Amino acid sequence: MTDQTPIAGRSAYHFEVMRRAIVLVDELGPGARLDDLAREMQMSPAHFQRVFSEWAGVSPKRYQQYLTLGHAKALLRERFTTLEAAHASGLSGTGRLHDLFMRWEAMSPGDFAKGGAGLNITWGMADSPFGPALLMATDRGICGIAFTSEAGEAAAFEDLRSRWPDARYTEDAARITPKAEAIFGQGGEVPLHFIGAPFQIKVWEALMQVPSGHVTTYSEIAAAIGHPKAVRAVGTAVGRNPISLLIPCHRALRKSGALGGYHWGLPVKRAILAWESVRADA
């Protein structure tokens, strides 16, 4: 009998296996053998390798190389993106998750100051390659994506809702599901609606210039938006990005090569960076 589970659903299940495997790689070290990992996961080696490889695209052994702490430093050495050069060469349009065509518009500063008053936001849950995802959208486009595997669904919802506390929220799977399928499935046009302060929006726009499989630094973003000394403020704006993945805040690293923080959990950030690196190498 064939597996009728949707691709995104299988990917979400695979990510749960993947997330636990990341913890094991950290605990057992980079020399952990396939048999050791499979035993700890309570799976046969063959089944573990199949599930893992379907999600990652490579074997667990190969993937471990992308999960080491040194991988972030290697990305900075080999795939550091100068944002001005990326913008000039059109790199921002290549290598996205599904080559999505995205357009975006921002809420005016005056409207943002109202805390979302008068704004109708629909929301719903969806499977993604990085675990369960919470999506929010206005009539103009996606305004929020949160990954809930670390924080939990309720906490993620309150986190996003607190950014626009006076908006009206309606659960509407019928409206959210097609958007989730475009993002995590076969691709398609995905309009974005930036709801943030003007400085935050500048930072988010800069992040969208970083190609998949590449990284940048907080200081590079600060320079690119014309505020080279505002590194701390840039870091705060990166952390407040409400549209995970599509505004790729996971591609921002500290100048030292450290991962820095990630609003939805460092295991998710590490998984996304490794996942994108595998595909960039391929």
Rank of each mutant, 00 (worst) to 15 (best):
G152M: 10
F184N: 03
P129W: 05
G144W: 10
R140T: 01
A137R: 10
E105R: 15
P165M: 09
W204M: 11
D139H: 13
Q209C: 09
T170E: 13
G116W: 04
V203N: 05
F112N: 09
G141K: 07
T217Q: 03
M125F: 02
C143R: 02
I142F: 02
A146G: 04
G131P: 07
A206L: 09
S149P: 01
E181C: 02
M208P: 06
A174T: 03
G188C: 08
H193Q: 05
F199P: 03
T170S: 06
P178V: 03
L207A: 12
F130Q: 02
G116Y: 05
F130S: 01
G187D: 03
A206E: 02
A117W: 02
P178L: 03
L207T: 05
I201H: 02
F147P: 00
E171I: 10
H214L: 02
K114I: 02
D127E: 12
K179T: 12
A156Y: 01
K114E: 13
G213K: 05
E153L: 14
T217C: 09
R175G: 10
L207D: 06
R168H: 12
M125D: 02
R168Y: 08
S212R: 14
I142Y: 01
A117Q: 11
E189H: 07
F184T: 01
D139V: 14
E189V: 14
E205H: 12
Q200T: 05
G110D: 14
D172A: 15
I183P: 00
L192I: 10
D111Q: 14
V215E: 13
G116R: 05
